[in-house]
Amino acid sequence: MSEVYDTSVDLEVELLAFPKAVPELRRVVREHLGAPCADVQLCVSELVGNVIRHVGEGAPVRVRVSRAGGLTRVEVADPDQRALPGLVRATADDETGRGLALLDAVALRWGVEQGASGKTVWCELGEAGTVLDAPGQGSACVP
């Protein structure tokens, strides 16, 4: 992991996208939020995993996790403007293609912002006590 910035509200991590960095990133997110945060950790893992798979191992990424107004926002920025994520319907025999469907299921909303030097894929999750606490669904983070 390259650098971790903690502004007491937001977490920002800059790293090179390698598979071995993902478990450490999940740990840093969990520690920053101060509680088990399975949905947030899933989203961070999926978005960084997509960079590894579609942009390439070693791509520089910036991961940001922020909380405001009852929402947790996850952003993963990478330098490739062309590798845009999209939901696909994975069949029972497909080995890939389920990650964004999982993210879509736990996030309230998600999207992509394109810039001059790359893109940022983001998602927003409800915190404890919001719609994600419905039976059968977890919360973004249990304080």
Results as ranks from 00 to 15, higher is better:
V55Q: 07
V55K: 05
V55G: 08
G56V: 01
G56P: 08
G56E: 05
A59N: 01
A59W: 04
P60Y: 04
P60Q: 09
R62C: 10
R62L: 12
R62M: 11
R62P: 06
V63N: 04
V63S: 04
V63K: 06
V63W: 06
R64P: 04
R64A: 10
V65P: 05
S66F: 05
G69V: 04
G69L: 11
G69E: 12
G70P: 02
T72G: 14
V74I: 09
V74L: 03
E75L: 07
E75F: 06
A77W: 13
A77Q: 10
D78Q: 02
P79H: 01
P79R: 00
P79Q: 00
D80W: 10
R82D: 15
A83E: 07
A83C: 06
L84I: 13
L84V: 13
L84T: 07
G86S: 09
L87S: 02
V88N: 05
V88Y: 07
V88F: 08
V88E: 11
R89F: 13
R89N: 13
A90W: 12
A90T: 05
T91P: 07
T91E: 13
T91N: 11
A92R: 14
A92M: 08
D93N: 15
D93W: 15
D94Q: 13
D94R: 10
D94T: 10
E95N: 13
T96F: 11
G97C: 06
R98E: 06
G99I: 00
G99L: 00
G99F: 01
G99E: 00
L100V: 00
L100C: 01
A101V: 11
L102W: 13
L103M: 11
L103H: 06
D104Q: 15
D104K: 15
D104M: 09
A105V: 04
A105I: 02
V106E: 09
L108K: 11
L108V: 11
R109L: 05
W110E: 00
G111V: 01
V112Y: 07
V112M: 08
V112Q: 06
Q114S: 15
Q114P: 10
Q114L: 15
A116M: 12
S117R: 15
S117D: 12
